[in-house]
Structures are given as C-alpha cells and as structure tokens.
C-alpha cells in the first residue's frame, strides 16, 4: 500500500491543502496597504508643499528631487532602528512599493551582511533584493527610450 507513493504529485492532496490551508485576508491587507502607502505618500507631499512654502526661491523641479531623498533617508533611519520591518508587517505592499520600500530593501541586506565584512558582505549583498528591480528598471527605461526615439524620428 505504501509502495509507489513516496514521490509523485498527488493532485488530490494538493487540492486538500487548498481547502484546509488558511488564506490571506485580502480585503484587510489591501485596506492596510492603502492607508500605510497613502500615509507615506502624504509625508512626501507634505514635505514637498512645506519646502515650496518656506523656500519660495527653490524651483519645483529641485524640490521634486529633494523629496525622494528625504524619504529614502527617513526609511533608512527607520530600517536601522528596527521600525520599518514592523511597518512592513502591517502595510505589506503599501510600504514596499513607495521609494521607502526600495531603500529598505537595500539597507536591510546591508545590515544583515555587515558581519561578513564591507566588500564581501555589505557590498556584495546590498542589491540582493533590489537588484532585479534595478536591472528591470534600467532595461525598461532603455527600451522605452529607444521606442520613443524611433517614434520621434518617424513622425
């Protein structure tokens, strides 16, 4: 009876797991993600508006460059003191998608691998999680740039 059942895909069993396993509560996590993500964006926007209010001399495009910088620094700080992962536990994608999540994904492996040294630890592992995002982002921007160039020269 037990022979031949060691290694095989048992569709009936996989179906049973699907029935019995607890599911992610999508509505609850989505609402949490909406508010956490929204809150992070609000901070960015608020900083943007305050900058424009207090330093009228700055032109809007400079401010738009400063805002992400500030958010990245904030996220780095929160990651280092061990708060960002707690926000992430509640917010999920709401705290992963904004630029703060990107900062978190670079800083957290850097902290983790500090023990293996600067070169082989921090530098080698920093982009372990953010690496794919960077590669795909750069490839996508190059491709869209080429497409734009072709379209421009055609028209």
């Amino acid at each position: 009876m037990l022979a031949g059942m060691m290694y095989m895909e048992d569709q009936r069993y996989l179906e049973l797991i699907k029935q019995r396993a607890p599911k992610t509560r999508h509505l609850r996590t989505m609402i949490a993600a909406f508010f956490v993500g929204g809150f992070i964006c609000c901070i960015g926007q608020a900083f943007n508006d305050l900058c424009a209010y207090f330093f009228p001399a700055l032109n809007p495009s400079t401010i738009k460059q400063i805002v992400p910088l500030v958010l990245v620094v904030l996220a780095t700080l929160l990651t280092c003191i061990g708060i960002y992962d707690k926000i992430g536990e509640i917010g999920g994608a709401g705290s992963i998608i904004p630029i703060t999540g990107f900062a978190n994904s670079i800083i957290s492996p850097a902290i983790e691998h500090k023990r293996e040294g600067i070169i082989n630890g921090v530098c080698a592992n920093m982009f372990k999680i953010a690496g794919p995002v960077l590669v795909i982002g750069i490839v996508a921007s190059v491709l869209s740039g080429i497409i734009a160039l072709v379209l421009k020269s055609v028209t």
């Binding site: 607890p22 280092c80 992962d85 999540g101 957290s108 983790e112």
Partner: peptide, 17 residues
C-alpha cells in the same frame, strides 16, 4: 531567516502558513 528567507529588517508580511 537569513538562510531560507529574507533579511530580518526587510519589511515583508508573513503569510498565514
């Protein structure tokens, strides 16, 4: 966590399983 999953400080959500 480091061996099988993500860095400790990465803000991820744990699945119900």
């Amino acid at each position: 966590e480091r061996q099988f999953r993500f860095p400790l400080e990465l803000g991820t959500q744990r699945t119900p399983l």
